[in-house]
Design a protein around this nucleic acid. Sequence first.
DNA 1: AGGGGAACCCGTACGC
DNA 2: TGCGTACGGGTTCCCC
Length: 286
Amino acid sequence: MPELPETETIARDLHESVAGAVVARVTVHREDVLRETTPEHLAKAVKGVRIARVWRRAKLVVLDLNRTSKVQATDQTAIGHIVVQPRFTGAMLIDDGTLPADRLKYLTITFDLDDSRALHYRDVRRLGTVSLMSPARFVEYTKKLGPEPLDDSLSNTDFSGLVRASRRPVKTLLMDQSRLAGVGNIYANEALWRAGIDPSRMAASLTDVEAGKLLAELRSVLTASIAARGTSFRDYRDARGQRGSFVDQLCVYGRGGEPCLTCGRRLIDTPAIDKRTTVFCSHCQR
DNA sequence: AGGGGAACCCGTACGC
DNA sequence: TGCGTACGGGTTCCCC
């Protein structure tokens, strides 16, 4: 399930390998993943345009599209964005002819590139989405998202302020994309365990010191996971079809009933908060 | 503002 | 073995 580190890994890989490439043709195999566009509209809008940059915002992979004509060569303004939200089973795959055959099942959209490679959006369960947005629409859409946790411009004071403004459980707040972008169930659980904070605590009850500790641990776990190319718990694969290895460094997620790595007591696994699996240590997390 | 619930989708796991 | 069904998981949207 791609959260921030997995989406970051996909975006970096894609940027490295397809930035600058031109889209020759688009084939939509499964129309139901499209949002804000139609197969005809997408094909027309994207044919012959350059993928100028691939980057991440929240849990979204964003492809910036530019014109290819020489006249426009100095104009760096994107003419639009393809916004991919992989959700659970979505993957962006670079197909240079070497992908194993089983990776080529469940393709939903194929962007043929002018260098004979292809970029596929593959999604087994198709809860993920692919949108085509104008620059204005993209701004409107992304301004509803909270700050990026790894952005240096997010200060301890800012973070403490947004945490302490909410009376919801702190875990719910961490996962609220409109307050803080990119954090999902895995990293919310991990950061709270590392920070020694009970996930069900009212966010507003955290002290400035606790909030500072939580942001530091959140950044630490996200950074370490990016370095490991993300967590492949079930389905996640990067743009090369490979698994991420951070699953080996998870301390609580997926370890309900097993011993806490700090105190050895049984980790509690409960759906009590928002019906999402929360794993924590009732002894170490207060 | 925020809580609850439904919809989206289908492979997997499980019961019989 | 095969068939049927429940489940999961993030986001969006609608209602309260």
